Amino acid sequence: MTEQLLAGKNIAILVANGFEELEMTEPQRALLKAGAKPKVISPEQGLVNGWHGAAWGHYFPTDRHVGEVLAADFDLLVLPGGDRSVAKLATNPHTRRIIGSFVDSGKGIVAFGKGVELLALVERIKGRTVTGADSARAALEAAGAKWSDDEIVQDRFLLTAKSNEDMSGLIDAMLRNFTAAVEQRKVAA
């Protein structure tokens, strides 16, 4: 069922240098298996460098530059964590524009670990329940979000999760969230 519903769906994975490698590669792999078309969106040109454990990880090709992307080009959004990546994306005005458009349109968003902090930038999460890296809590609460200590939190089209080594539960929740978001958009159309 998931494979049919996500077939052909364009998924934006928004990262900058220093993103948590597993938080990008595991969702990307699962989305490809589900028939989706994940695209790496970044302020970096050509290649973006991941962070793995306590050191720099692999380089990955980027599909589109963040300045050339519209939320309307995509069905769903993935926000991996990583201190360096989140810090760089937080200073980019295109990040606010893209995430804000996803929130406004009610499209599915999944944010992992530190990537959850990017949701505070758009000032549209007041009253939403979220979880993520503990270091993101203050920014999210200041933006009006309700913090949860649960591993995974679903609030309508928004799925937030703490990061951990076993990504399987997070991936299953992401696929369910995206499938539900696609179904809801079909019903609304």
Rank of each mutant, 00 (worst) to 15 (best):
S105P: 05
L22P: 00
G127R: 03
V103H: 02
A173N: 09
A133Y: 14
M167F: 14
V78D: 01
A145D: 01
F157E: 08
D104G: 03
M1S: 15
L89M: 06
D172P: 00
L79S: 03
I152T: 10
F112K: 05
V110Q: 04
M1H: 13
L76Y: 03
K39R: 12
E117V: 04
M1K: 10
V122G: 00
P27I: 02
K107P: 05
G50C: 10
A111L: 08
G35I: 07
K39N: 10
D63F: 04
G127Q: 04
G53Y: 11
T160V: 13
K37N: 13
R64N: 06
N10V: 07
N92V: 06
A188R: 14
P38L: 06
L77H: 09
R128L: 12
E68N: 14
A120Y: 10
D134T: 12
S85A: 13
E26T: 11
K88C: 07
G57V: 08
L6W: 02
K162C: 06
K186G: 02
W56Q: 12
V182R: 00
L158A: 09
A142T: 12
I13S: 02
E21D: 06
L79A: 05
A180C: 01
D73G: 05
I109P: 00
N92C: 10
G132S: 14
T129C: 08
T62D: 02
N164P: 02
D63V: 03
V86K: 09
L119T: 01
D83C: 07
E151K: 13
V153W: 00
N17R: 12
G8M: 05
A173K: 08
A188Y: 08
H94E: 15
L170E: 14
G46Q: 09
I98M: 10
D166P: 03
E183V: 08
K107L: 06
T131Y: 05
M174S: 08
K114T: 14
L70D: 12
K39W: 10
I13M: 15
K162F: 08
I152D: 03
I99V: 15
N164S: 14
G108A: 13
V66T: 11
E44G: 01
I41D: 02
L6M: 04
K126I: 06
L79C: 12
D155P: 05
L77G: 01
L118I: 06
K33P: 03
S135K: 11
A111F: 07
P27D: 09
G115V: 10
M24I: 07
N164Q: 13
V103S: 01
P93H: 11
R176S: 08
M174F: 15
K107T: 07
N92M: 07
D104N: 12
V122L: 05
F178W: 07
R128K: 14
S163Y: 14
L175K: 04
D73F: 14
A12R: 02
T129Y: 03
S135G: 04
L140G: 01
A34N: 02
N10W: 04
S85I: 07
